[in-house]
Simulated scan of single mutants.
Amino acid sequence: MQLAELNLGRLSQPIDHPDIAEFADNLDRINGLADRMPGFVWRFQDDSGNATSVQAFDDPLIIANMSVWETAADLERFVWGTIHRKFYERRDEWFGKMTEHHFVMWWVEEGHRPDLAEAKAKLAHLQAHGPSDEAFGWADLRSAKLWEKSRCA
C-alpha cells in the first residue's frame, strides 16, 4: 500500500494578489522538490503542472494539494525535513484558519491515483467519524515523529 494525502488551505487573498506572491512564486520550487524526493509517487495537477488553478471547491480561495507517497516516512521527510517546512511555518501569512478538518491521509493500492471526489470523501469521513483505517492524520501514524515538533496548533 502507498500513502495518499489531501491538504486544503484557504488563501487570505486570491493567488495572484501581491500579499500571496511569495507563496505563489515558490510553488514550482516546492512542487519540483517533492517530485524529486525519494518515495514520491504522484501529485494532483493540471496539464501545466499546477494544482492551484483547479477550482476544487465552491470557495475559489480554497486550494488543494494531493499526492501519493511510497511510505509515510517519505511524506514526513518531505513535509518536515526540507525547505517545505519553512513555508509551512509561515502559513499564517498566506492562509486563513480552517475551522474543520483540512488534512487527511489514507492508504491506496500501488498504482492507484485518487481523484478529488475520493479525497473529498476521505476528508468527509474523517470529519464525520474521526480517525480510522479509512481516513486519518499524522497523530494516527505511530511511526511518524517529525510532525510532533511542527504540527498545527
Rank of each mutant, 00 (worst) to 15 (best):
L3D: 01
E5S: 12
L8Y: 00
S12Y: 04
S12R: 10
Q13W: 08
P14R: 10
I15S: 13
D19P: 03
F23K: 01
N26W: 00
I30D: 02
N31V: 04
G32C: 02
D35H: 03
D35F: 01
R36S: 14
M37F: 00
P38H: 04
P38L: 05
G39N: 05
F40S: 13
S48N: 11
G49D: 07
T52K: 05
Q55P: 00
A56T: 02
F57T: 06
D59G: 13
D59A: 13
I63M: 13
A64T: 10
M66G: 02
S67W: 08
V68R: 04
T71W: 08
A72F: 08
A72R: 11
A72Q: 06
A72Y: 00
R77H: 11
I83V: 15
I83M: 12
K86P: 01
F87R: 04
E89N: 06
E89W: 09
R90G: 12
E93S: 15
E93W: 09
W94C: 04
M98S: 07
H101T: 01
F103E: 05
F103I: 13
F103D: 03
V104D: 01
M105N: 09
M105A: 15
W106E: 13
W107Q: 15
E110V: 15
R113A: 14
D115A: 12
A117M: 12
A117H: 05
A117C: 11
E118K: 07
A119S: 06
L123Q: 00
L123T: 00
H125T: 10
F136M: 04
F136V: 10
W138C: 01
A139C: 10
D140H: 15
R142V: 15
S143K: 13
K145R: 10
L146S: 09
W147F: 15
S150V: 11
C152W: 13
